[in-house]
Amino acid sequence: MNIAFFLLPKRDVVCLTPDTTLRQTLEKMEHHRFTSVPVLNEDGSYLGTITEGDLLWFLKNNIQITFENAHRHSLSEVPLRLQHQAVRIDATMEDLLKLVQTQNFVAVVDDTDRFIGIVRRSEVIDYCAKLILKDTPARI
């Protein structure tokens, strides 16, 4: 199975840049009900994934930052606690499965390391469940 089958293309993915303000980040995550979002450089390369936890720990350790002044601070100030791995579009299903165990989604990059989309954990689980259920005899 080619992982491109699971790809949600970049045009359909909410992405942020290091220049995005903390306020914009919080508002986008709340609006879309996301707990993590990919962060891309201006050239489209994948930098990492910002999570609610990253924001929470950053705000906890910087008590002078409030929601009212969060527009003065950018994502470039926030350290990423986890290094979410990306896969290349030609990666194997085994590579993808290893990453979806610990990531809500896996960023996918092309052969020049440009972000082209994501594979959501839920899509991989649905696919695996269908394979398992297809091979399981029906119970009466």
Rank of each mutant, 00 (worst) to 15 (best):
M1K: 02
M1Y: 01
M1F: 00
M1D: 03
N2K: 13
N2T: 09
I3G: 10
F5L: 07
F5V: 02
L7T: 02
L7Y: 03
L8E: 13
L8M: 06
P9E: 08
C15L: 11
C15M: 13
C15F: 11
L16A: 09
T17F: 03
T20N: 07
T21H: 08
T25N: 03
L26G: 15
L26S: 07
E27D: 15
K28E: 15
K28W: 06
M29G: 04
H32F: 15
H32W: 15
R33S: 11
R33Y: 00
F34L: 15
T35D: 14
S36N: 14
S36P: 09
V37Q: 03
P38W: 03
V39W: 04
V39E: 02
L40C: 07
L40T: 10
N41H: 14
N41I: 05
N41Y: 13
N41L: 08
E42D: 14
D43V: 08
G44S: 13
S45L: 11
Y46K: 04
I50K: 06
I50P: 10
I50T: 11
T51P: 00
T51V: 02
E52I: 11
G53W: 12
G53N: 12
D54Y: 02
D54L: 05
L55W: 01
L56C: 04
L56F: 07
L56M: 06
F58K: 00
F58E: 02
L59G: 01
L59R: 00
N61T: 01
I63A: 11
Q64L: 09
F67S: 12
N69I: 09
N69D: 04
S74A: 13
V78P: 06
V78N: 10
P79W: 14
L80A: 10
L80I: 10
L80W: 11
R81V: 13
R81A: 15
L82R: 15
H84A: 12
Q85S: 12
A86H: 15
A86F: 15
V87S: 08
V87C: 12
R88A: 09
R88W: 01
I89E: 06
I89N: 03
D90A: 13
A91S: 02
A91P: 00
A91I: 00
M93P: 14
M93V: 08
E94T: 12
D95R: 09
D95H: 10
L96V: 08
L97M: 14
K98I: 07
K98Y: 07
K98G: 00
L99E: 11
V100M: 05
V100W: 01
Q103I: 04
N104P: 12
N104A: 05
N104H: 06
F105T: 00
V106P: 00
V106R: 01
V108Q: 07
V108H: 05
V108M: 07
T112I: 07
D113V: 06
D113E: 14
D113L: 15
F115W: 10
F115A: 12
G117C: 09
G117R: 06
I118V: 15
S122Q: 13
E123W: 04
V124T: 01
V124F: 04
V124Q: 01
Y127P: 04
A129F: 10
K130W: 06
K130N: 12
I132M: 03
L133Y: 08
L133Q: 09
P137V: 12
R139S: 06
